[in-house]
């Protein structure tokens, strides 16, 4: 099968890659480009571990074909920190002990970032609603919700 040439803006950088049309964005990010922060938990859109932003909206990278990203903007968990300067969400997840095994963490952070980009001051129920597409099996969600609340407060304060 011939491979298609795709150009995207990936984490702010113009990026070209070759892929088969049947390859998902997740597969290409992980296997071709080497960005393994987005995780495969279910490969059918039900766990959110592969959440990335496509043109600023959160999507499951397993439910996007890589060829669809031609000319579009893709942002992954790898884009959030600048050097050792963590994003407030990343810092809040550490401070609140909001991860145990950590496999779902990149997806949660990307979903939470999409929420805070849109609604800077969500209440608990709103956070739970937005994060219901992300499964965590370790934490029972308690500390994740608190981390998002903490990050929201800190980002509000910083403004």
């Amino acid at each position: 099968m011939s491979r298609t040439h795709v150009s995207t803006i990936l984490n702010g950088v113009e990026t070209d890659f070759l892929c088969e049309p049947r390859q998902s964005l997740l597969e290409v990010l992980r296997d071709e480009i080497g960005l393994t922060g987005a995780k495969e938990g279910c490969n059918n859109g039900n766990c959110g571990a592969c959440a990335v932003h496509l043109d600023g909206r959160v999507v499951n990278a397993c439910c996007v074909l890589a060829v669809e990203t031609q000319g579009r903007t893709v942002d992954t968990i790898e884009s959030l920190a600048h050097g050792d300067q963590l994003h407030p969400l990343q810092d809040a997840f550490l401070q609140e002990a909001a991860l145990q095994c950590g496999i779902c963490t990149p997806g949660f952070i990307m979903s939470a970032k999409a929420l805070l980009d849109q609604e800077p001051n969500p209440d608990e129920q709103r956070i739970r609603f937005w994060l219901s597409g992300n499964l965590c099996r370790c934490t029972g969600y308690d500390k994740i919700i608190r981390a998002v609340q903490r990050a929201a407060a800190e980002m509000q304060e910083a403004k």
Binding site: G48, L54, R57, V58, N60, C63, V64, S111, A114, G133
Partner: peptide, 9 residues
């Protein structure tokens, strides 16, 4: 329909 990440698409 699905979660937010589904509704984006």
């Amino acid at each position: 329909i699905g979660g937010i990440a589904i509704q984006s698409r």
